[in-house]
Write a protein that binds this DNA or RNA. Structure first.
Lengths: 246, 246
DNA sequence: CGTTCGGTTGACTGCTGTCAAGAACAGTGG
DNA sequence: CCACTGTTCTTGACAGCAGTCAACCGAACG
């Protein structure tokens, strides 16, 4: 699936931001393979991660082994894993695909210069959009049924991927298993399957191939998920910023 | 219930931090009454809130009116409501009791001076502990049953209140209704009642008076909640910081 | 060609929501 | 001091959504 030409819209700042950091801070770009675990819950961590390619999951587990994915990071996303005064990672950080990322340590952004100040503004916005995503999921885990959770997750991925030019119309790559989708939505893989099949029978979604999903009826999905798409975009995407980043 | 003498432990930094901000930044202290709504979901917001007294809820609602409380702020907590590049509040901000708080705007903390840099470190830690709390709740909403959610919430409140000297041994003030506790745990008020009564019958909790809760068997609660208390404290409390805050 | 992994479906169970009614309690005004 | 009222808590009966268990299928792969 070819990436689309970037256009002016909320979200593109994330890519510009990533490029700028890579270029200006001379931060080394790391790679990890699908399934690799970068950090375990409880590990020491005082850094953030800027993901440039691939999908990355932050997850937690109960003693019995039941796992919940707290947040999925997509290309261009920044995630705060630890801080100097809270240096224990709350989540396990696992690559959901082959990924590229850079590690951001406090001195890189807490300096007195205006460029650092601008970076902090963007990082604050990135943290807020993460909080917003997590809040939306929390609401649906607490109050929504299976269809609502799955529909929400699909709309969220499409919205975020569209903002960074990784969609093809209403089709996007969806590289994870139903098991992982269950860990995102708080459902078993069995019930994820039932729910997806039902959405498919109702003509709301389709999967053109085994690694992609197509959203045939976005209004129906929004209805199931309880989403007002315009407000949703305003809350979970970083708004356009002044181009003085570099 | 008299406040305890502060001792050296994780968490007390939050109070020191609050006092320092109030004193150094000459930020005005605002007040709000129980039930007052400071911000509605979708409102413009580019600020943070530092709560100095009382309980404050961040919540979201579905179209049908079902409400989920995303996070409860306790005295000494900092909450990021909006940022310059993400200026839409994702949550409704509502006072769960009479409260006192100060509003923190970007210029107050994004300056080049070392004091601002130090404040940013503490704010970053405060944001991470919030993320950590939210993640724990997300895990239990996705994977835990009613007993696990309620037990977790009680342990969390006790741990956080103890850290700021607002407990009396295993007793603490609990000023909210079962309805609100249901909005926190993703349960109906009816099932919250059933769960609390069962914990009480089993001798795990008690309520000495209608506004307080006593945790009689903390190990049992941790077991129900799936909490390792030491690791839990390390994740959700701000660790001791150098005393150079002021 | 066998093995493994992921997906699909059905039968059954059980936890939690819904609905309803009553009890306990606080606040309010007479 | 006493109705009156509204809120919160409590309990029971019932229903429904999602988990569990099990079996099978298809694709990928060595």
């Amino acid at each position: 699936m070819p990436p689309q030409t970037p256009t002016s819209r909320p979200g593109r700042v994330q890519i510009a931001f990533a490029d700028t950091l890579v270029a200006n801070l001379a931060a080394p770009v790391n790679t990890a393979r699908n399934g690799h675990i970068l950090t375990y819950e409880g590990d020491f961590a005082d850094h953030g991660i800027l993901l440039t390619d691939g999908w990355l999951a932050l997850s937690k587990s109960l003693a019995g082994g039941e796992t919940q994915i707290i947040d999925v990071m997509l290309p261009g996303d920044f995630g705060l894993i630890g801080a100097k005064d809270a240096p224990i990672s709350a989540c396990t950080v696992e690559a959901l695909s082959d990924i590229r990322y850079i590690t951001i340590r406090p001195p890189m952004v807490n300096g007195p210069d205006p460029a650092s100040a601008k970076l902090r503004e963007v990082l604050a916005a990135a943290i807020l959009t993460t909080q917003s995503r997590t809040s939306e999921m929390l609401l649906r885990l607490g109050r929504g049924n299976a269809a609502s959770r799955v529909a929400f997750t699909l709309i969220e991925f499409h919205t975020r991927l569209h903002a960074v030019g990784r969609t093809n119309g209403t089709i996007f790559e969806f590289p994870i298993t139903q098991q992982k989708l269950g860990e995102i939505t708080g459902l078993t893989n069995v019930h994820v399957c039932r729910t997806l099949r039902r959405l498919e029978r109702d003509g709301i979604i389709a999967h053109p191939d085994s690694r992609s999903i197509e959203l045939l009826d976005i209004p129906a999905l929004c209805d199931l998920a309880g989403i007002d798409l315009d407000m949703f975009r305003a809350e979970i995407l970083i708004q356009d910023v002044a181009p003085a980043l570099g």
